[in-house]
Amino acid sequence: MSELIERRLLELGVELPPPAPTVANYLASVRIGQLIFLAGQLPFKDGRLMAMGILGRELGTEAGKLAAKWCAVNVLAEIRNTLGGFADLRRIVKIAVFVASTPDYTEQHLVANGASDFLVAALGERGEHARSTIGVASLPLNAPVEIEAIIEADRI
Results as ranks from 00 to 15, higher is better:
Leu9Gln: 01
Val23Cys: 06
Thr82Asp: 10
Val99Ala: 09
Leu49Lys: 12
Leu42Cys: 07
Ala122Asp: 09
Gly114Lys: 09
Ile151Phe: 15
Leu66Gln: 14
Lys45Phe: 14
Leu83Thr: 04
Val93Asn: 05
Ala100Ile: 00
Ser138Lys: 05
Phe44Asn: 05
Asn81Leu: 00
Ala68Arg: 03
Asp117Val: 06
Ala121Asn: 14
Ile95Trp: 07
Ala63Arg: 13
His109Leu: 03
Leu83Ile: 02
Pro19Ala: 15
Val99His: 07
Arg90Trp: 08
Ala121His: 00
Ala39Trp: 13
Asn142Val: 06
Tyr105Met: 00
Phe98His: 14
Asn74Gln: 11
Asp46Lys: 08
Ile54Lys: 03
Arg8Val: 05
Glu152Pro: 03
Leu110Lys: 15
Ala115Thr: 07
Phe86Leu: 11
Glu148Met: 14
Arg126Ile: 11
Ala24Ile: 06
Pro43Thr: 08
Ile95Asn: 06
His129Asn: 07
Gly84Ala: 01
Val97Asn: 04
Asn81Trp: 11
Arg31Pro: 10
Leu139Ser: 09
Leu27His: 09
Met50Arg: 10
Gly47Trp: 04
Val120Thr: 10
Val136Leu: 12
Ser132Leu: 01
Glu62Leu: 12
Gly47Asp: 01
Arg91Gln: 14
Gly56Ser: 05
Gly124Lys: 13
Leu76Cys: 03
Glu62Thr: 10
Ala143Ser: 05
Ala149Met: 00
Gly127Gln: 09
Gly135Cys: 04
Leu16Cys: 02
Ile134Val: 13
Ile150Gln: 02
Leu27Arg: 13
Gly114Met: 14
Glu146Met: 14
Ile79Cys: 03
Ala130Lys: 10
Gln34Leu: 15
Glu15Lys: 00
Leu9Asn: 06
Gly84Phe: 08
Tyr26Lys: 12
Gly135Ser: 08
Asn113Glu: 14
Gly85Met: 04
Gly56Ala: 07
Leu16Asp: 04
Pro140Glu: 13
Leu55Thr: 04
Gly124Asp: 11
Val120Trp: 00
Val14His: 04
Glu58Leu: 08
Met52Ser: 08
Ala77Glu: 07
Cys71Met: 05
Ile134Leu: 09
Phe98Asn: 09
Ala28Pro: 08
Gly53Gln: 02
Glu152Cys: 03
Arg126His: 14
Gly56Thr: 02
Ile95Gln: 10
Cys71Glu: 03
Ile32His: 12
Met50Trp: 05
Ile32Lys: 04
Gln41Leu: 11
Ser116Ile: 10
Ile134Tyr: 07
Val145Met: 02
Asn74Asp: 10
Leu49Ile: 10
Thr106Glu: 10
Leu35Lys: 04
Lys65Ile: 08
Glu152His: 01
